[in-house]
Nucleic acid binder design. Structure first.
Lengths: 246, 246
DNA sequence: GTAATAGTGTCTATAAGACAGTATCCG
DNA sequence: CGGATACTGTCTTATAGACACTATTAC
């Protein structure tokens, strides 16, 4: 009741046996674009609970490990990522019953990477592959384990939103890339068709977004100029996705 | 090494004594606008560590308590908030040494509320008051306890960004309010001056953002029309803050 | 009167949506 | 040839920034 009741609860925390056991994990929503579709890396669980169900990759946070470091370690373990991928914290999920075994608070991360050849089904899981998120949404495949449907949905929405005002779309591509390839990333992530001419004008009129290499690449028909990522990370004004009618 | 090494680590978690003790807390960045300044609610710590330092309000997450529920409970305890305040998860902070006593992972929340008369210095802390965030930034006052400077800075930036594309600014005001009062919220949060005429046009041209009551209020000089919050929560197009030069 | 504020109207620059049109290549 | 793609250019509309102007009130 006194002014340091707050402190007493902290002191209670100080005794390892005085507070309820909680595990802290990181879960990863790893997104990439494959064959024109936004895909998420999923792991098939080999044991209970949710045995046989697909789940986001993730794992325990080490005793003296930073949250970001744990996410980076898991990303490397699950994808064998060598190049630079984007990694950012997404949100935390801690419903008391989200894991039937014990109280688990999961700090979810969002990772964006260029098309990865091998899903690395070796290390930690029974199976691993990239699933188109559109298929998962349609209920065509069973729901994910735990609350991972929700986490993945939040991650996809974060990625969709960030394409509007950042240069993150370029992290889905290997350098160098063409303007049309960049446009197809936007189209895959947003699930819409964009006007090629207007998209091109918008991208090239944003200083420092992409840097022309001077090279060209033979595409399906014709030749397309090649670009690398520029220094600009924030888009002003934004490249807004088409709204579902006004 | 086998396909369920992942599972083994989960089973290890299942034994409460087999994983390192971690405490999960919620910390609140409670923002309000007082006297034209964006202010944050801070609590003066009455005990070690960081005794006497100002800190964000927060506390332990109950054994079977959801994260959001813990944040709502703490907000009610610390502010005595009766009316509707906005509350959303901000991010999680889990550097291994952020609390000298033990491993603590804090899930931070951002709360926005209308001007609150009494800081409620009674319940949990030695002292409590609203501090203008501009003063804290200038280093005019000592740094906050733990990593709360960082959390508060992240919360302020989140609030600033969300004013651009949501109707959240209205949660800083009691109804009914004038367009000028709403503008002063934007000016306080962003720390800039806005053009009154253009701001008015923008707000009134966004359908459903504010609803005229038909009443008027005597202001300093003259009469101003009164409005209440509308149903629109997302602003399209956004009300972008002035950028520090192009 | 002056100073400050609420509110209206207008001009201009910018940017986006729509679309015409050329050049190139594949089949 | 038709069809698809890379790329250029133009027209229209919507919006934001800047600013002129009136009305009202406090002092």
């Amino acid at each position: 009741m006194s002014a340091d009741a707050d402190e007493q609860s902290f002191l209670a925390d100080y005794d390892p046996r005085a507070f309820p056991p909680v595990a802290v994990t990181v879960d990863l929503a790893v997104l990439t674009v494959r064959d024109g579709q936004l895909c998420a890396l999923l792991i098939r669980r080999g044991a209970h609970p949710y045995r046989g169900r697909w789940a986001l990759p993730g794992g325990f946070v080490g005793a003296r490990e930073d949250l970001d470091a744990a996410a980076r370690r898991e990303l490397a373990e699950e994808t064998g990522l060598d190049g630079h991928a984007h990694l950012e914290q997404l949100a935390s999920y801690g419903a008391p019953d989200r894991d039937p075994r014990m109280r688990v608070v999961s700090v979810a991360y969002l990772a964006l990477a260029a098309n990865l050849p091998r899903p690395v089904a070796s290390t930690d899981a029974a199976d691993a592959r990239y699933w188109p998120v559109a298929d998962l949404r349609d209920g065509e495949h069973p729901a994910l384990a735990f609350d991972h449907d929700r986490i993945l949905a939040d991650g996809v929405e974060r990625a969709r939103a960030k394409l509007e005002y950042t240069s993150l779309a370029t992290t889905f591509l290997e350098e160098p890339f063409t303007i049309a390839e960049l446009r197809r990333v936007y189209e895959a992530v947003w699930g819409v068709e964009l006007h090629p001419a207007n998209f091109r004008r918008k991208v090239l009129s944003t200083p420092g977004l992409v840097v022309p290499t001077g090279e060209e690449r033979a595409t399906g028909r014709g030749w397309a100029e090649l670009y690398t990522r520029g220094a600009t990370t924030n888009l002003h004004p934004a490249l807004l996705r088409p709204r579902p009618a006004a």
